[in-house]
Each structure stands twice: as structure tokens, then as C-alpha cells.
Amino acid sequence: MWPCMKLRHLQELLQQIDGFDNPKVHLEQYITPPHLASHMLHTIQTHYGDIDGKLIADLGSGCGGLTLGLAALNAGLVIGFEVDQTAVEICHSNINDQAFSNIDIVQCDLTSNSFLSRWFKQFDTVIMNPPFGTKHNAGIDMDFLQKGFALSHNTIYSLHKTSTRAHVLKVAKSNCVKAEVLAQLRYDLPSSYKFHKKTSVDIEVDFFRFQILNNS
């Protein structure tokens, strides 16, 4: 076990973070629920020591929930990559509210290969809660994951719909990356969009840990 902030404190911190006022459907902007984000981050640090003192990328950092949680757990530096202007602005105000100095945000298009440039294999850890690719953007989850594989020289943590598990495992294998499902979670998605008929909907989600193998 690695040293870590108390889970309860981490969750309290993440509950203070502002989310999206008007989430954009085409970008699948959902925040990672604080209880889920805090459990993920707590596991990553206590079981694997992959946060404290590490260089970390958060892909599709959104309003900064995971980014701020990583900063709170003493990441050496977290760099959040995000395409959307509104998300970037909310994230900026969240960072200011919490006064973290071990964070940088870069606004860029993660689906373009070019943003990798000099970041290739530079990160110790990559974390993401990618769009699930269910809103006319099929494959974007695997695109994010491949970017994660390219950026990290060690580990990648990600969430994927349980229904896509076999595919995720196949993609990992074909990239010579070891994949492991750490937990199967219930993602309680509040109805944030007008087309949602129920007040909330549960999706089964896999919390994945990927380990880059030396020969990849």
C-alpha cells in the first residue's frame, strides 16, 4: 500500500468542483461522479503508487474533476488536454478555487494525431474518462485509448462501457499492452440532456488498468 490522502477527504474535494451548465451532446460531456472519481484515484495511488510524484496526462479533462483529484494526491505535474472552450473555462475557475499549482491545461483536439508530437511516451501515467462513443461518434473511445498508449511509457487508467469489454481487451492486445479490469462500476448518469426520459440511468462501466510492456 502506498501513502494516500483519505478517501473521504478526496471525495469532499471533488464534490466542490463545478460541472457543466450546458453539456454538449456531440462531445458526450458527462462529469465523472465524485464518488466514482475518488475511488478510482484512491485505488490508483494506494495500490499502484501511480500518482504521487508522477507526470500525468488527463485526456479530455473537461471541468477538471480527475485533474484536480490527481493534483490533490500530489502528482508531480498533471497536464489536462481538452478541446472545448467552455469546459476549459470552468476547469480554470475550478483550479483557481482550489489553488493548485501542479496543473497545466492545454486546449487541443485529441482526435488529431498531431497533438502527440513531443509528448510521445513522456508521461508516467495517463488517465481518462473518455467519451463512450455512443452519440454518432463511434470509435472515439478507442481513439482516446490509443492516444493514451502513445503518451504513456508506463500505465493508463480508463473507463469503458462493460458491453465493449471484449473489444477493449482486443485493442490492448494488438497494441502489446497488458489490460486488466480493476472493477466493474455502476455509472449513475444523471439525466443531463433534454432527450433523457428518466431522471437517471445506470450504465455498467469497467475501470481498466493498462500496463505498457517493454517490447511495445
Binding site: D104, S117, R118
Partner: peptide, 14 residues
């Protein structure tokens, strides 16, 4: 933006 981040950014995508 920190200088470590500047050190990694390029405009090669253009």
C-alpha cells in the same frame, strides 16, 4: 502555461 509544457508543444500539425 508552464515552461515544461512550452518545451513539448509544436505547430507541426499545421
Amino acid at each position: 502555461m508552464k515552461l515544461i509544457t512550452h518545451n513539448m508543444l509544436t505547430s507541426k500539425c499545421m
